[in-house]
Design a protein around this nucleic acid. Sequence first.
RNA 1: GGGCGAAUAGCUCAGCGGUUCAGAGCGCCUGCCUUACACGCAGGAUGUCGGGGGUUCGAAUCCCUCUUCGCCCACCA
Length: 879
Amino acid sequence: MAYDPRPVEPSIYKRWLEAGVFQPRADGEPYVIVIPPPNVTAELHVGHALNNVVQDVLIRFERMRGRAVEWLPGTDHAGIATQNVIEKQLAAEGKTRFDLGREAFVERVWQFVRATGNTILEQLKTIGCSCDWSRTRFTLDPAYSRSVREVFVRLWDEGLIYRGHRVIHWCPHCLTALSDEEAEHHETQGNLYHIKYPFEDGSGFVTVATTRPETMFGDIGLVFNPKDKRHAALKGKRVKIPLSGVVIPIATDDAVELGFGTGLLKVTPAHDANDFEIANRAWPKEDKPLIMTEDAHMEKSSRVPVDLQGLDRFEARKKIVKQLENQGLLVKVEQHQHSVRRCYRCDTIVEPRLSDQWFVKMKPLAEPVLAAYYKGEYDLVPERWRASYENWMKGMRDWNISRQLWWGHRIPVFTCTNGHQWADREDPTSCPKCGAKVEQDPDVLDTWFSSWLWPFATFGWPEPTPDLQRFYPGHTLVTAPEILFLWVSRMLMSGYHFMGKRPFRTVYLTGTVRDTKHRKMSKSLGNGVDPRAVVKLYGADALRWTLIAGSSIGADVILDPNDLDTTFAPGRNFANKLWNIGQFVLGQLPQSVPSIDAIDRRSLTLADRWILSRAQATVREATASLEQFRLDEAAKRCFEFAWNELADWYVEAVKPRMTGASAATPQAVLAYCFDLGLRLLHPVVPFITEELWQKLPMRKTGELLATAQWPAVRPDLEDPRADREFGRVKIAIEQIRSIRAEYRVTPKTKLRATIVARGNDKPATFAGERDTIVRLAQLESLALDGVPLGVGAHAVFGDGSEVVVALEGIVDVSNECRRLSEEYHRLDKQLQSLSARLTNESFVSRAPQDVVAKEREKEKAWRDQRDVLAKKLESLGCS
RNA sequence: GGGCGAAUAGCUCAGCGGUUCAGAGCGCCUGCCUUACACGCAGGAUGUCGGGGGUUCGAAUCCCUCUUCGCCCACCA
């Protein structure tokens, strides 16, 4: 019977919700994760799925360990992104936001957000995320907005916010300023235009190279490096800007790269941040003319030729190049690979633009955060991000926080008609100084200026709420490395600055989900894997399994969008396996299952002791792996326990014992192990484990696996001897099966075998599991006395013991000779290299003693094994 | 230009100085409907661990270098 997750998962999730298990328990040490708030308009994609499943695994693990777990969910108003969505809608109606006006536009965004927002949170439920939905937050909630405003006013009062007049990244499509981090670099194949600038006196020209010819009308001069001998004579000369004829001076500046272009740089201070700096040094009193409008069309200004005015910047560029060419002012055009900044929301090429914006001074915020990092107050996992992080924290420039948008937190700066200016927690009606009329700054704050407060604003800061006291600081932050600088570093800054404490202990940076060509999955490339489709096809557990078990810590996850079946089969197969183990186990258990502690220990067989011991090892290893964020390791270890140990060996070994009076012991062991496996696997595959767990007869009514206790290692059940001895039983069975396959003996044919024990463990080791060996190797009989069986096939154990399978009339002696002799030579070769090492003086003297000792033991065992093979070959009369 | 990461079986990956370390899952081959499971069971094949050099008694594992791919940062117009 195959497991079908579709009807199970939604009903299990509903039970969790109804039982309220996602809310933190009243007592216990807190464990807090705040979700990286997705954009309120977002739809779940596979990157979210990875990110949030990792969080859910950690959360479920800690919840089962008894912590008061708070996983705070919520969404981000995402200023630019959301505003863009609505503007697109308006555009389809032939309108712009200016047609509606500010108030009506914002109202329209709210309507949209209220109607369709938060769908992503609903989608998180389908993949099993156990967030505390009772504390869902939105960055524009009234309480959250108060926190934002409080932070702004405090920074203002501390003098950390200032009005800066400088060149910022401007998106001509979104019509707003962007921060450095929001203007992304993209390598682009462009042109380098070499243009003649004639001397004012008509005595010739100089050549200047530029990638953006259309900016030349904003030039206020040319500069060259003072060390550049080629141009020494140019200093003090004046040239005319082509096409406009505006006369500009030539000066020197150290910032000019000696080897690049012609060595002459045109300075456009209003449209290039670098040029702005140069202009301030070379011509501090000169005007810095803007020659483009906000939407990047050529300005109607006296500096711009009339026929170019009003043209889009790229149209203008084409036309300018043509005109230069016609007038013989274009020397050449070179292909030029360079980096162009684009808006991270709409991909439009950013136009640097001189303007007035609000900035936050970053140094005072960043320094304590970096110092705390050096002190080890918080960690990045994996640690390899250290260098980038450090580098960025040290080199960070001031943060432009004003956005010329309408959707967001309005900047609480007020100016009265008499010029008084201040930041205010309330909306004033008149100037407190002079009583004059006041006006609020029209801009809104950068979205990150609200999300950087997420770890404490969500809990009610600045009010000293009980939540804030209990849930700050948090513990783990799980996020994509892309927003390490944009978001994580700033949360650390706000946390230290306003709370005086780190916001979290560990920053777990996940990998990126990519396709098989290692391209990031994205809507525009159409190479995405839709997690919702995966859930429908294979179930949420299968999705989770592939995401968690399929990638190690912080590594990229490669998924093949064209072969979902191969990608998600492992998880589906495993869920099915678990389901069927459950069918078997549940079929064996009586209404009242004996506890493992209630049964007589003396009734435990070797197989019982073995699986109980394996269970302890699994708990130990899985717990340790989870504590070290090695989720893949933990998942795989539990998989091995359930499938390769419990199902493949224990269940098979124990089947004959499941009936009759003596069944109580295996029932108890089976129940214990299955229950334990379900608990350990629950964080990774919560749905199927809960569903099965609900059917366990020993479960108390109303109990849920989601809040059941994480297993502890029980030293009394650890049994290294059983591990070793049952290990030998397994080898015996495998050897016999292997011989059967090699000689093509049909499964129906019952074989006779004998075991000759030569090692430390006496035949008694096998005696206890004789029936198991007989059954699983499909034998007719198994002798343990080593009595020869005539013609047979041999397999030798590591310690020289051997198993002989009688094959009279079946075996071909020459075939067996060949087989054994291959085995002999393989072993002999290994032995020789080992012996060589052991007679090597430098190895024996320099290698650690325990390694040498181990190698000696190994040598002895191999020698024994080889000698047995030699005798066998001799007795068979092999040449 | 600076920094980081990856390169291991056909595919996706684990292992990151010393126990058969050359592994797992998927795929492939052979045989099985063995009363939990064919989304399964049993048995198998497959890799000069990217190339080269070095350190070491010993290297997939450490160092250097090259090649290929990817990412991050950066004011060469």
